[in-house]
Structure formats: C-alpha cells, structure tokens
Design a binder for these strands. Structure first.
Lengths: 149, 149
DNA sequence: TACGAATGTTTCGTATGCGAATTATTATAA
DNA sequence: TTATAATAATTCGCATACGAAACATTCGTA
C-alpha cells in the first residue's frame, strides 16, 4: 500500500470521529453534559468504582485530561474522589446519588442514539466494519512498529 | 443491530483516532508543528489558495477552530490571509515562502509515516478497511437520519 | 432602492487534550 | 535502613475544538 492510502484512511478516520462526536453533541445538546463526561458517567454506572488511570486507559486519554474532566464532574457533584487506603497514590472515582439521577435521565437517550446509529446496518456490514476497525486498531497501536523479524 | 454494537464501534473509533494522532505526534515530536497545522500546510502545498471554509470542510472542523489554527500559522509566518476582491467576506489562505521551506523539510517524514502505517496491509485488508469506513461515514453523517420514505 | 435574510469569518467563553514538571507514595536495591 | 527508582495523580502551559454571538458583506425582494 502506498502513502496516499494511508492519507485517505487517516482523513476518513478523522471525518468519522468528528461526525460521531457531532451526533452525540446533537443528541444531548439541551443537557448540561459533554461527551467525555457522559462516557465516564456510563462507565461508573457499570463499575461503581474506577481508578483515574483505569478511566484514562478505557477512554484512550492522558491522565491529565481525565483529571480535568473529573474536576468538572466533581464540581457538579456527579462524582467523588476517594483515596485508596491500601495504596495512597491511587484515587478511586465513585458516583454520587446526584449522578445516578443524571444517569437515569440520560440512559434512555444514549441507548436510543446508539441503537439508531446502527439501525440499518446488516450483520454482514457490521462484520465488515468490525474487521476493518480491528485491522486499523492494530495499525495505529503505539507498538505498531513490531520489529518481529 | 443492538446498542451494544453501537457502543463498541464508537469506542473503537475513539481508540483508533487517538492512536493515529499519537503516532503523528510521535513522528513530528521534535518539529515545531502540530498535526492540524501540518494538515493545512500539506493542503496548501497542493492547492495554493484555499478559503477558510474550504479548509474547515476538508478537515471536518468548525470555522472558529480553523480560524484559531490559522492565527498561529500566521504568527509563525507560514501562511498569509488575503481578502477576496470579488467577495470581501471571503478570506483566502496562501502559503508563504517560509512555509514552503517547512513543507520540504517535513514532506519526507510525513510520506514515510503514511507509507509505514500501511506497510503490511494487503490489498484485501485495505478493501475491508475502506468498506468499513465508508459504511461508518454514512452512518455518522449529520444527515444520517435520511427520512426518505 | 432599501431592508431584512443569508453568508463568511472572527471573537469569545468554555471544555477537551497533550506533554512536561511536580507531588506524594510505594517498591527496589545497596 | 536508607537512597533511588518507579508509580499514580495533579498542576501547568498551550493547542485544539465547539457553539453562540458579533461583524462585515452580499443577496433577495418588496
């Protein structure tokens, strides 16, 4: 494959990512919650308690970025930070009762959005998407330069 | 398709986009140029003259975002803004001689990076990727909710 | 022609998003 | 045991990134 192909793929990914974020913003445009904040809220609805670094990893974000998002979620009283007793370097993030209310309010909208997104996708198309994304993920992984001779 | 599939796809896209940006940053980490700045420089190497809105569209960014990036490129004397004579609302962006120097310096690195990215991808895999991305692009397009009866 | 709508860009405020440096704590080794 | 390295999170400075509002200009129409 030549570099034009790389450029084409890169542009497409950028376009799709922008489009997806746009759709999420539209879906929640009257809600006082941003996409990454939403993502953390949904993660905490499943896990109850997460380290800051676990959130960073799951979201493919730097720790410093997540720290800032948590600041704003904490200011809105949606999450709280709890120092780990066993390892005081670790900070656990937990949901507040306030957050549970927000989650219930938005759960429906998010579920509908996600279902709507793929409403017309056939099983075959879905497999094509996942296969393509899987190849791509391996390509861009930081250790993508595998020197296996 | 169910909403879990939508969530899986959304997470994958986010991950791939982050990985791609990461790789680009690594490739140019010693250069005083950021990824979106690089993209504009490469666009201007092909087109000579572009409207602000054309750049926004090609990059899937808001006009206001591009305007800020152009401010910084202009401050570094890489581009200049030229008011259109025929329509004074329009601003054309053009490359400076300084920018041409930068382009020549980085062209090689970018070309190699893009070629390297897809170096082990077979033609079949490439088709799978493009097919998947094409379906996705249609899904997330703002007018994705086509009400065609 | 005049005037309100539409268009293209910029400005403003705020939220990501990153890397480097910092702080606090824990693990390792001499 | 104590200096050193490693780890987890935060802080800092800066560059995206967005939408809303402002601004200038052009278009459409009465």
């Amino acid at each position: 494959m030549a570099e034009q192909d790389g450029a084409e793929i890169a542009t497409l990914i950028r376009e799709i990512n922008a489009g997806l974020n746009q759709r999420i913003r539209e879906t929640f445009k009257d809600k006082p919650i941003t996409p990454p904040q939403m993502m953390i809220i949904f993660m905490l609805a499943e896990e109850k308690r997460l380290k800051v670094s676990e959130i960073s990893k799951k979201m493919s974000l730097a720790n410093s970025t997540v720290s800032g998002i948590l600041d704003r979620l904490e200011k809105q009283d949606y999450i709280k930070r709890v120092r780990s007793e066993s390892d005081k370097r670790v900070v656990y993030v937990e949901a507040t009762d306030q957050m549970k209310v927000i989650f219930d309010q938005h759960h429906q909208a998010m579920t509908e959005f996600l279902a709507y997104l793929v409403r017309d996708v056939t099983a075959k198309e879905f497999k094509t998407i996942l296969d393509g994304l899987d190849i791509l993920r391996n390509l861009v992984q930081t250790n993508g330069a595998k020197e296996k001779g």
